[in-house]
């Protein structure tokens, strides 16, 4: 389940900042009642990630995105780790075909 929720406004001077976050919730609950016994299991995981801050002032509203730069860099490195061996493989095959 993915939802975007709004926090309490933060007032800084003339400005009002409204935080926005994405909540990813996954979980399961299971109860089984059988003749041989009772069993209950519950697990839940919640991830909260800030996505933006909305600035409200005299000049209106402005949405400022909050990006996870570390995750972006790590994704880039992962992509490079997949693409570079593929490119090398293509280069070797082309070279050996000649």
């Amino acid at each position: 389940m993915n939802t975007v929720i709004t926090g309490d406004p933060i007032r800084v001077g003339e400005r009002e900042l409204l935080p926005l976050a994405q909540v990813t919730f996954s979980g399961r609950r299971r109860v089984s009642l059988t003749g041989r016994g009772t069993m209950a299991q519950v697990w839940a995981v919640a991830r909260l990630r800030p996505i933006a801050i909305v600035e409200r002032g005299d000049q209106g509203e402005r949405r400022i995105s909050i990006r996870d730069e570390t995750a972006r860099l790590l994704s880039g490195l992962l992509l490079a780790a997949i693409l570079i061996p593929l490119l090398l493989e293509v280069a070797v095959r082309l070279y050996r075909r000649e």
Binding site: G7, I10, P19, V23, F25, R29, A40, V42, L48
Partner: peptide, 25 residues
Amino acid sequence: MIQKLLDSFTALRERASVNALFGEP
């Protein structure tokens, strides 16, 4: 005990708050 487990499941879902992500100015 089972009821307590189910209650904690619901509570976790409802308590997800943005305010935990933004610190004091």
